[in-house]
């Protein structure tokens, strides 16, 4: 009897430890980012850092304003959401409720595959196909632009939006739908007036998850956005928060390097905010 108990406690201990390892990493990253990110912000001045529109880290008189990056990240994410959410949402309604078994299998398979494609491949295809296409279509000197990044991001966030929305829609009790059909509503009417509203918190969570994916993506957008630290313009070359860190890290030093950490800290705060929103919606959808 006693031995059994000791073994149970031991296993519990192991699981607790493993759980704490994860928590430990999160704490470590947070603490490190805060410590590494604060000095440059102090030196540059927080307002100057956040709202100055000029980033010239290697100039003889350097300027460290990251407003262009913040706005590019915000616009890029918003654009991806505006394009990706309607497509993803309607796809999820179709797959969860309307699609015949065969089509569902094929499309779901494609969605999983889309989720598994490494972001460098998205970047590569975007670079080879999308960028020249945009240049020709809109008659601009270079197709690498915010617009190209938005399209790539919109496609990249589709799988998360679709999968999370499907889960939410499938969790809607069948009884709600039956009640609607029994009142003489058509199936399509039923899905949009009963199932979707009943799943709205879950769908909101899907959108927020998409926002998180889009704002955190670096590799693919770096390859299609031109990477110049300009204030964002739809058809101009732009740099994101993520790519701002990635593109200078390898050769940076001194204050410039510290400022990159500060950018990472800002990005981290964005992600935290998005996560809080996500948790809020997920909790609501469970109730």
């Amino acid at each position: 009897m006693k031995k059994q108990r000791a073994f149970e406690d031991f296993v519990h201990g192991i699981f607790l430890f493993l759980g704490l390892v994860t928590v430990g990493f999160v704490l470590l990253i947070t603490v490190y980012l805060v410590i590494a990110g604060i000095p440059a912000i102090r030196e540059i001045g927080i307002l100057n850092f956040l709202f100055n529109i000029k980033w010239a880290s290697t100039a003889s008189e350097p300027s460290y304003g990251i407003l262009p990056f913040i706005l590019t990240s915000v616009y890029g994410t918003a654009g991806a959401i505006i394009l990706g959410v309607p497509v993803g949402f309607l796809t999820s309604v179709y797959l969860a409720k309307l699609a015949p078994e065969k089509i569902r299998t094929v499309v779901s398979g494609a969605v999983s595959l889309l989720a598994g494609i490494p972001s460098v491949v998205y970047g590569l295809v975007g670079m080879m196909v999308l960028v020249p296409g945009i240049r020709r279509l809109f008659h601009i000197p270079d197709g690498a632009s915010l617009f190209a990044a938005i399209i790539v991001l919109a496609i990249m966030i589709l799988p998360s939006i679709i999968n999370v929305s499907i889960t939410a829609l499938e969790a809607v009790p069948r009884e709600y739908e039956d009640a609607s059909l029994a009142l003489g509503a058509t199936p399509v009417e039923t899905y949009f007036r009963v199932s979707v509203p009943a799943a709205k918190s879950g769908i909101a969570a899907a959108v927020v998850l998409g926002v998180g994916r889009a704002i955190g993506e670096a590799m693919a957008v770096m390859m299609v956005s031109g990477n110049a630290p300009n204030m964002p313009e739809l058809f101009g070359s732009v740099r994101f928060l993520t790519t701002a860190v990635a593109s200078e890290m390898s050769y940076s030093s001194g204050l410039q390097r510290q400022a990159l950490f500060s950018i990472a800290l800002v990005l981290f705060l964005f992600i935290m905010l998005i996560n809080a929103a996500l948790n809020f919606f997920l909790k609501r959808s469970k109730e």
């Binding site: 009884e175 709600y176 039956d178 009142l183 003489g184 009963v194 009943a198």
Partner: peptide
């Protein structure tokens, strides 16, 4: 046909909406 021949289920299954919207759902449809 389903409008003419209504149905009440074993387990009460109101929609997760207001009382008003529950009743108005059918007529709106």
């Amino acid at each position: 046909l389903r409008k003419e021949i209504g149905m009440v289920f074993q387990k009460p299954n109101p929609f997760p909406m207001s009382v008003y919207d529950n009743i108005a759902y059918g007529p709106r449809t």
